[in-house]
Simulated scan of single mutants.
Amino acid sequence: MFAPVVVGVDGSAESLAAAAWAAREAERRDRVLRLVHVWDWHPRHEEREIANAAQRHLARRSLRQAEERVRAECPELRLTDEQMEGPATAALVKAADEAELLVLGSRGLSGFTGFLVGSVALGVVAKATSPVVLVRADEVAADEHVPADDGSPSTETGYGDVVLAVDLDDACDEVIEFAFEAARLRHARLRAVHAWHLAGPVGLGPGDIGLARDSWQGEEWLGFLKAVLQVWRDKYPDVEVLETVVDDKPATALVRAATGASLLVVGHRLAERPVGPRTGPVTHAAIHHVGCPVAVVPHA
């Protein structure tokens, strides 16, 4: 049996937007959508019965609201729901491990301050062994598509680019394959971006200065990028691919490249550190500052 698309819901605006996005993705992938609500377990006997009853009531209401949103978006979608006991991060990581992908919401902030991603979502992204997609609170179906000719939002136009962040020092098949498949499902262009950045002139000795950014370096990186992606071009011949190499900081380049995209795909290396699992600086910047949905794909 195929793994489902799973979405965590709690009744918030961001979780409802995530449920709607997850419904569209489940429909694209021909998968069952599984709605999950996690509630906290209260171990103290005198509090347990009342608190747990309240939690179950909240769970039922959250699941019902999410189902109504999903049915409005995709009426024919196969749908299940489940209540799980917390802690929330551990429960959602477990749900992700059984899913094709897990979808969570993030709350948008005004201006250029990015998006508020809670500690639960960050913990799940850091630990999950399946892809996790973060969706902002005001995401709607038209945001995945290019605007109509008059500039207005539309769901009748084609999808925006799927943007793939490629680290040529650590290019991972899992991340690349996820991005190609996402582009195929959307009939969208895949834009693969690699950023390299060197810090200005380098001193060679007394009186000697050599420029670090030789003119050939960008072309060399572009050749490497095309070589890495060639096997995937052959596997996905219907996907149009645009390779882009930029001399910029990776986080800055990705935020810029993802403007108007339908999806940004980044990788995350699964590694336990002494202070616990963390996302790398580029992934961290992407999930906080990129406006489109961000898929974080784990790899070894």
Rank of each mutant, 00 (worst) to 15 (best):
D10C: 11
D10E: 11
A17L: 12
A18L: 11
A20Q: 15
A23N: 08
A26M: 10
D30P: 00
L35E: 10
V36D: 06
H37Q: 13
L58A: 15
R60H: 10
S62H: 05
E73C: 15
C74E: 15
D81I: 09
D81T: 14
E82P: 07
M84H: 07
E100Y: 01
G108I: 05
G111D: 06
G114L: 08
L122A: 11
L122M: 14
V125G: 02
A126K: 06
A128I: 11
P131W: 04
A141D: 15
H145P: 13
P147Y: 05
A148H: 10
G151F: 10
S154Q: 04
Y159I: 04
V163N: 01
D167K: 02
D169L: 05
I176E: 03
E177D: 13
F178S: 03
F180L: 07
H187K: 10
L198V: 15
G200W: 00
G205M: 09
G205C: 11
G210D: 10
G210W: 04
L211T: 10
Q217W: 00
E220A: 10
L222R: 04
L222I: 02
L222C: 01
F224Q: 11
Q230P: 01
V231E: 12
W232N: 08
R233Q: 14
V246W: 00
L254A: 04
A258Q: 01
A271Y: 05
A271K: 13
R273F: 12
G276S: 12
G276W: 03
G280E: 09
G291C: 04
V296S: 04
A300W: 06
